[in-house]
Simulated scan of single mutants.
Amino acid sequence: MGALIYSMIVTADGYVADAHGAFDWGVASEELHEFVAESTRSVGTYLYGRRMYDTMVYWETAGLDEELPAGIADYARLWRSCDKIVFSTSLHEPRSARTTLRRSFDPDEIRELKLNLDHDLTIDGPMLAAQALRAGLVDEIGLFVTPVVVGGGKRFFPEGVRCELRLLEQRGFDNGTVYLRYRVAD
């Protein structure tokens, strides 16, 4: 049985993008990339909305024509080895291998995946994650809190989502980012 994990880089005030949709403050250090690569080895399937997929599809070719630091190259290889499911009504065809399109989010399909897969899944992007949170599907939440405040934008936890959390892990990084991993309480 796989766990469903919702994890993203966020500002200290809880945003994943600023009021203009920018994410330029979210650049990860090599140390952070190495940690993400190591901590996502249990993941075999990524669940994305269209915008998050458009951001993450970079990893499909990252490092193929250029030399990347070891931790970043490792993450790129891991990403390419995983299945991706993209939930979108506007994407006509995927731009990465091992990618399936779905036109709508079906909680029962995700519940079935969790039961039948022998690896973990991540759900990335606050709008898609909100649907999974409301359906009681998310098992863990990871926050990579960066030392920046943007004052508004797209929140990590969308309005109306409530869940109790139990701290499982915390770690600081050389760039001032702090990782907080929680179990969603039943």
Score class of each variant (00 low, 15 high):
V138G: 00
I5D: 10
T89N: 03
D118R: 11
G21N: 08
D186R: 14
D54C: 05
N175A: 09
N175W: 00
D174A: 14
R98M: 03
F35M: 03
H33V: 02
S29P: 03
D65L: 04
A37S: 11
G2W: 11
R134K: 14
D65M: 08
L180Q: 10
H92G: 10
I85M: 12
F173A: 00
A37E: 15
E169W: 01
W79H: 14
P147Y: 09
G14E: 12
T45C: 13
P94A: 06
E140F: 14
E93T: 04
V57G: 04
G26I: 06
T61R: 15
A73M: 08
M127P: 07
G136C: 11
L115T: 13
V36I: 15
R80E: 12
A3P: 01
S104Y: 10
L113R: 14
A185P: 00
G49M: 07
H92N: 07
K84F: 10
R77G: 10
D83T: 14
C82K: 12
T40N: 13
G49Q: 07
A185F: 06
V36Y: 06
S29H: 00
V57S: 10
V16Y: 03
A76W: 15
R181K: 15
Y58K: 06
R77T: 12
I110F: 13
D18R: 05
L133I: 12
P126H: 05
F87E: 09
T100R: 13
S104V: 13
E60Q: 15
Y58L: 13
S29C: 00
Y182A: 02
I110P: 12
L68M: 03
L180R: 11
E60F: 07
D120W: 15
R111N: 11
Y6E: 02
R155E: 11
R181N: 08
S88V: 01
R166E: 15
T122M: 14
E109G: 03
F23W: 10
D24I: 03
H33Y: 15
A12R: 13
P107H: 10
V138K: 07
I110W: 15
L167F: 00
E38G: 09
Y46L: 15
Y75I: 04
E169F: 06
I85L: 13
P94I: 00
M8S: 05
T55Y: 14
A28I: 02
R134M: 11
V57L: 13
E169Q: 07
P126S: 14
M52E: 08
A73P: 07
F35R: 04
V27R: 12
D13K: 09
G152F: 08
R166P: 01
D18M: 04
D124G: 13
T177M: 07
L64M: 09
S104T: 14
G160I: 10
G151D: 02
R51C: 08
E31D: 04
R166F: 05
T177F: 00
P158D: 05
S39T: 11
F144W: 13
L117R: 15
P94H: 02
A129P: 02
R102D: 03
F156P: 04
N116P: 06
E34V: 02
G49E: 06
Y58I: 08
G142K: 08
G176Q: 00
G63T: 05
F156H: 10
R41C: 04
Y46Q: 13
V150G: 06
V149Q: 11
S88A: 00
